[in-house]
Design a protein around this nucleic acid. Structure first.
Length: 200
DNA sequence: ACAAGGATCCTCT
DNA sequence: GAGGATCCTTGTT
């Protein structure tokens, strides 16, 4: 019996207990459900402790604490005072690492997403990390929540397209060496991917 | 108590 | 592709 998009294997903690860039790559295609909204991840970025692009590189603070905790949890923070950004903690307990969810396609619940975003439906409605935060109605209080027990979000494997990679976006403040890392991943077949020109 | 800094978004060319 | 808007939280006084 072939599996449908609604009948996929759940993601376990071991999935997240690997290097962040591997997890970020493998998150492409993963389905995120929250209530009536189902998203398919099409763009991600990896961040790690000794990487000057990462919030955790200066050390542990109350805000970045989830990044240092066990894998398979959220790290949600407010960006530019407006946007709520969803990260998934990777690696091992005590070492900071995470994956930013940058882009997604809406599989179910488009009406809910349109309402939350306040824009008409279109391929770009969840193309960008701030848009995903809005689509899932995330709050900064959602930081540190478990991703494996399925109580906050439920994650299952989904269809992947062709995986492309490139440098991360919006990290001009980071050291040149870190800016060059090819830690951005995307499904090249998706229309919900931003900054296409930088990918290969 | 406050300055400073954004892992962005949107609207133009 | 580039630039400005925007405004809350963080980390440090």
């Amino acid at each position: 019996m072939s599996s449908t998009i609604l009948d996929r294997a759940p993601i376990d903690r071991a999935f997240f207990a690997r290097d962040a860039y591997v997890v970020a790559r493998d998150l492409i295609g993963v389905l995120i459900r929250r209530d009536r909204v189902l998203l398919r991840i099409v763009e991600t970025e990896a961040y790690a402790q000794h990487d000057t692009a990462c919030h955790a590189h200066k050390g542990l603070t109350p805000r970045t604490a989830p990044l240092f905790g066990p894998p398979g949890h959220t790290y949600v923070y407010l960006c530019y005072g407006i946007h709520r950004m969803l990260n998934m903690v990777a690696g091992s307990d005590g070492v900071a690492a995470g994956c930013l969810i940058r882009g997604a396609e809406v599989v179910e619940g488009l009406d809910v997403v349109v309402d939350r975003r306040g824009t008409p439906p279109g391929p770009g409605i969840c193309a960008g990390p701030g848009k995903i935060g809005a689509a899932l109605a995330l709050d900064v209080k959602d930081t540190g929540k478990d991703l494996i027990d399925g109580r906050f979000l439920s994650l299952t494997k989904g269809p992947t397209g062709r995986i492309a990679s490139g440098p991360r976006v919006g990290i001009d403040y980071a050291d040149p060496g870190d800016r060059r890392r090819q830690w951005r991943f995307a499904d090249a077949t998706s229309k919900a991917v931003t900054h296409r020109a930088l990918l290969r």
